[in-house]
Structures are given as C-alpha cells and as structure tokens.
Simulated scan of single mutants.
Amino acid sequence: MPETARYTALVARNAKQAAADMSKVLQVELEPEKDMIEMGTQDSYGLFSSEFAKRHGLHLVGTAMCWCLVDVGYYSQNLFQKNVLSSVGWLPPSKNMSAIEEVFKISKAQTLVALCGTVPEYWFTVLFIDHLGWFAIQLMGFSFMSIFMFALAIPYTHWTNTKNKICKALF
C-alpha cells in the first residue's frame, strides 16, 4: 500500500512523488510546487537525535507520563472494580452466587458506572470540543478523574464499614 501524498511530501520530502500519487488518485495532472521541491532539501533531524530531544523531549515525556498515569488509574479501576463493588456492598460474596449470576451482577454494576461516568463525558466532548479545544477537554477529563478517584478513595473505610441499604437495593 503506498504512502499518502501528505506523508510523501512532508515527511519523506518528495514533492514530485506526492504530486504523481495525487495525480493517480484524482485523475488530474498535477505539478509539484517549486517551494515544496526546495523545502525538501532542508536539513532535518531524526527521531532519536539530540535535536529532537531538545525540541520535543519535554513534551514527549510529559505526554507519556500523563497517559501512563491515566492508564494505570483507569485500567486498574476496571480490573479491581469487582473487588471494590463487593467490599462496599453492591455485590454479594462470590460464594453466594453461581458463576452466571456473578457475571450478570458485575456487568450490571459496571454498566451503571459506565452510564453515569463515561457516556456523559463522551457526549460533553462531542458537543463542546470545537468550542473548548482538545487541550481544555483533556485537562478537564484528567482533573475530574482525579477528583472523583480521590472522592472515592479518601472515604474508602466508610464505604467498606457502612453497608448502605440504598446501594444494596440497587443490586
């Protein structure tokens, strides 16, 4: 599969090949622009070069750290959600249920969590992404996830010691 014309022109710095590829796709004769051909001879730096590290290293490390923390928090929450839901009284102990009943109750609880948490966030993002921008939406998402996780983690002993009747009635 050939590369896209945009990649060929900007990354591979081959404006002539990009124009030829676009000519095939559009079935129109295209000529590469002179300034694009001259731009292809500029010095560039590689991904693992010191110039790349100097220009983009801090951004790359910051982005990787943010995504690592989100992944650890989000996916571990999904992995251990069954244990948390059992300890707060939303699910009965596993020994009191059959395997199918346990799967049904766990999926019902996780569906409720997803419907109350992630679905409204997705629709908020769809509606406001053009007005607020990617950075603001992502910053709000990280902030709200942190706030809600701390709001659940700080009173965890209260949740585990107090078997809430309302929570038991839901499940």
Rank of each mutant, 00 (worst) to 15 (best):
K108A: 11
S44A: 12
G40K: 09
V72Q: 08
V113E: 12
A19P: 07
V88L: 01
Y156G: 05
S146D: 08
R55C: 02
L152I: 13
V88F: 00
A15P: 00
L85I: 07
T111M: 13
S107F: 07
L47Q: 06
T63K: 02
H56A: 12
L139G: 03
L152G: 15
W90P: 02
L115S: 10
M39L: 10
E3P: 01
P93S: 00
A64T: 14
C167R: 13
Y156P: 02
W134T: 06
G46M: 08
E31F: 09
K165R: 12
V61C: 02
W159P: 00
M140I: 04
C66D: 09
L79A: 10
P93Q: 00
A153P: 05
N164L: 03
K82F: 00
F124C: 08
F150M: 15
L112P: 02
A64L: 14
L30T: 03
F171Y: 09
I100H: 14
N83P: 01
Y75R: 05
T157P: 04
K54G: 06
D35I: 07
A64F: 15
P32Y: 01
N78H: 05
G133W: 01
L115Q: 08
A12T: 07
I37W: 06
S49G: 12
H59P: 01
F144W: 15
V126T: 07
L170A: 07
R13P: 03
T162D: 12
M149N: 13
P155Y: 00
V88D: 00
I154L: 11
S143E: 03
N83G: 15
I166H: 11
T41M: 07
N78P: 01
F148Y: 14
F171L: 09
K108D: 01
L10S: 05
E102K: 01
L170M: 09
Y74R: 04
S94H: 07
N161V: 04
G133K: 06
G133C: 11
E3I: 02
Q77W: 05
I106S: 00
S146F: 11
I137R: 02
M97E: 02
A153G: 10
C167K: 13
L127K: 13
I106A: 01
G133Y: 06
I147R: 03
H158N: 14
L47D: 06
A5S: 14
L47C: 06
Y45M: 08
M65D: 04
W134L: 10
T63A: 11
E31N: 08
A153D: 10
A5P: 02
R55K: 15
Q27M: 08
V70H: 05
F148A: 15
H56C: 09
I129S: 04
P155V: 03
L170D: 03
G117N: 03
A19Y: 06
S94F: 05
T157D: 15
K82T: 11
V113F: 14
K34P: 02
